[in-house]
Design a protein around this nucleic acid. Structure first.
Length: 441
RNA sequence: UCCUCGGUAGCUCAAUCGGCAGAGCGGGUGGCUGUUAACCACUAGGUUGCAGGUUCGAGUCCUGCCCGAGGAGCCA
């Protein structure tokens, strides 16, 4: 049986709005939704969107039946419609092309769509996130996000990395459980992953170069523009790699993805009114500053920051404003970083870890470093941090059987996207954000 | 958890010193043959977050609570 929506079975040429310029003069059909409607009495203008773009359908009285003319004027915003007609280039049309409507099929007539083309508050939009996604700005962000994901994958795939999926359920408390989401696991308890890194360390000893890309969960009581409770991280891990190699990999990745977005998603950046000049400046190698020098820099600027603590948001912003492209901060004090971070033998106070901070006040988008590969050192670290050794036996095995220097990092997808799109808040970077007090819709 | 600000029509907001609760958008009705978040006219639409208090009189002042936003802390 013929389907009314399968091309070739209806005798009509179905096109996507993004392709209208290739169909000027042809009679075609578009399946979409009514974005907005205007009229000047004898001519109605229906702004139709289909996800690939928007086009105005012109409905002239006398050119269609009185019933269709009436119908076109009665539809509410977001009514689902299938429109047919001839594509015409016209300077008066938004986008330069319009559809001279000959027939109109109403799949559903809608009234009282909640989101009008006027301004709305954040709380209202968040409560209607499922509908907010249809707006022009959100479409643009989601398309850049999809391109960013693809660019990350291509970067690693093209360099011989193997995609390894890390588990979402993880066993027993590694460190304090306060930042982990606890879930029932049959008659036991499991936790949602905070990072796939430890598993990537195992995988890189098998495959050399690996990465994982998936959601991570943090049960932190953070109520800021830079935190989500569920976010996506891409985490590469490389055997026979040190801090220097790790930082080079990180900057090559950032340069690659920024170039890709500039190449493929300029139109979306335009919609977002993103000034692309700061993105055009991104190139490797990134400026590097040691933690010690960063502390000096902060103190010169009048901050009361003391050696040994981790940077707070204002500190990151202050540093970030001194560079016009991303930069690495490296060699943090051992107290700032995790138990698995390799110590620098020369100073013993520092570890071979780094953060990459995005400019324009965005701060940390990457955190990583070289891992402790010596069994005795790692055992000592686990004890010093008061961690349950039995939970790490499998991890210690990696240092018993063919241990090598290795390093990796995690890139926060949403923070990177927020910077690339110049968004004020992380909540717009993910389709359905999970925040401290938001799990709906 | 702490600090700051806010909650008035479906949405965005206004309401002077405590004195008749309003506008724009959206909805409805009518008009307009090229609109660009169209425009014009008319119209419907209110438990001013909740509970209590002060007052002749409370959207406005006081107390408590709820909800939201921004920030801080927190953040292998």
């Amino acid at each position: 049986m013929a389907s009314p929506y399968v091309e070739g079975e209806t005798g009509l040429t179905d096109i996507e709005i993004a392709d209208v310029s290739q169909h000027v003069g042809e009679e075609i059909r578009i399946k979409g939704w009514l974005y907005n409607r205007r009229s000047s009495g004898k001519v109605h203008f229906m702004l139709v969107r289909d996800g690939t773009g928007t086009i105005q359908a012109v409905v002239g009285k006398g050119e269609v039946s009185p019933e269709v003319f009436e119908l076109a004027d009665s539809l509410g915003q977001e009514s689902s419609i299938v429109v047919s007609g001839v594509v015409r280039a016209d300077a008066r049309a938004p986008g330069g092309y319009e559809l001279v409507l000959s027939s109109l099929e109403v799949v559903q007539s809608v009234s009282d769509y909640p989101i009008s083309p006027k301004e709305h508050g954040v709380a209202f939009l968040m409560a209607h996130r499922h509908l907010w996604l249809r707006s022009r700005r959100q479409l643009a962000i989601l398309k850049v996000r999809a391109e960013l994901v693809r660019a990350c994958r291509d970067f690693f795939d093209d360099r011989g990395f193997v995609l390894i999926d890390a588990p979402i359920f993880t066993p027993a408390a590694v460190e304090g459980t306060t930042t982990l989401f606890e879930v029932g696991y049959f008659n036991d308890t499991a936790f949602l992953t905070q990072s796939g890194q430890l598993y990537m360390e195992a995988a890189c000893m098998a495959l050399g170069k690996v990465y994982c890309f998936g959601p991570t969960f943090r049960a932190e009581k953070s109520k800021t523009r830079r935190h989500l409770t569920e976010f996506w991280m891409i985490e590469p891990e490389v055997a026979y790699c040190d801090l220097e190699g790790d930082m080079r990999l990180a900057e090559e990745l950032v340069v690659y993805v920024v170039e890709r977005i500039l190449e493929k998603r300029r139109e979306e950046l335009d919609i977002l009114e993103r000034d692309t000049a700061p993105l055009e400046r991104v190139r490797a190698p990134f400026p590097r500053i040691s933690y010690d020098d960063a502390v000096k820099r902060l103190q010169e600027e009048g901050s009361e920051f003391t050696w040994g603590s981790d940077f707070g948001a204002p500190d990151e912003t202050l540093l970030s404003n001194q560079y016009d492209q991303p930069f690495h901060v490296h060699h943090f004090p051992v107290g700032c970083k995790a138990f698995y971070m390799k110590r620098d033998e020369e100073t013993s106070k520092h570890c071979r870890g780094f953060d990459t901070l995005a400019p324009e006040g965005y701060g940390e988008i990457i955190g990583g470093g070289q891992r402790e590969d010596n069994l005795e050192n790692l055992e000592r670290r686990i004890a010093e941090h008061g961690l349950p050794r039995e939970a790490f036996e499998w991890y210690l095995d990696l240092r018993r059987y063919g241990s090598v220097p290795h390093a990796g990092f995690g890139l926060g997808l949403e923070r990177t996207l927020a910077w690339i799109c110049n968004l004020p808040h992380l909540r717009e970077t993910i389709p359905f954000p999970r925040l401290l007090d938001t799990v709906y819709p």
